[in-house]
Write a protein that binds this DNA or RNA. Sequence first.
DNA 1: TCTAGTGTATTAATACTATAATACACACAT
DNA 2: ATGTGTGTATTATAGTATTAATACACTAGA
Lengths: 130, 130
Amino acid sequence: MTNPEFVSLEISPSSGVPIYRQLMEQIRRMIASNQLSPGDGLPSVRQIATQLSVNPMTISKSYSLLEAEGLLERQRGKGMIVSKQNTTTRTLEERIDLLSPAIDELINEAKQLDINSEIVISELKKRLGD
Amino acid sequence: MTNPEFVSLEISPSSGVPIYRQLMEQIRRMIASNQLSPGDGLPSVRQIATQLSVNPMTISKSYSLLEAEGLLERQRGKGMIVSKQNTTTRTLEERIDLLSPAIDELINEAKQLDINSEIVISELKKRLGD
DNA sequence: TCTAGTGTATTAATACTATAATACACACAT
DNA sequence: ATGTGTGTATTATAGTATTAATACACTAGA
């Protein structure tokens, strides 16, 4: 068991993507990278709901769908934990595949904005460096 | 006047983002980069609707909202054109600002997937190179 | 004038998203 | 036993997103 406080979830209300889907994607990625390991506990529904100022049932929906996918397990009366099945840590290649849509989106937008490849790369480096 | 056939629009039905917003963002970017210049014509509502297998009213919604923003102008009986006001081509800095969310999203996802900065950059370079 | 092509308004129906207020079954520590 | 903390089911409400079928006013060319 770990400290669910370390699981930091964020939402972008203006993105157009439903909140429950934003949360699902973040949790999926943290499990794929083993930042959330099998057996790890997740923050409670009410905790996240308060923190993000969102209805608890919205969080519950994310958890339920992730449970249906087999990524999370429900522990009655306790909370959600990362499943011990179906959660083998992904290889680097597999994780890069999961990152592909974001890369493609960046390239696509840069093209539409007519921004040079070199500039995209230097801008990315700048922000990666903090 | 130009050939609206060259305006290639794409949608990702699985992204969760409403179709009309996906279209708006793409058109906004192409105007900002002057790939669509003031006076240029846009594809007709029915043309895009057929091409994307989407209801014409969904396209019309995108156009109407962009007209309300001042980016497009309606030409009665003819079609939509890029407005001649409010569409000064953006400077490089401004366009980079418009690209920022996509960069931030990529960095955020890479972090959650525990993918190294160097790998993110090399992967981006790989795909930018075609 | 006719015809085909613009965008749009209208009305209806369906599905999805999110909130709200309760209530329930369960686990655990006291 | 009690209280607090889990996730969840229920019901209701509201707003948004999308499709569908028509109809309208306008433009342009034959």
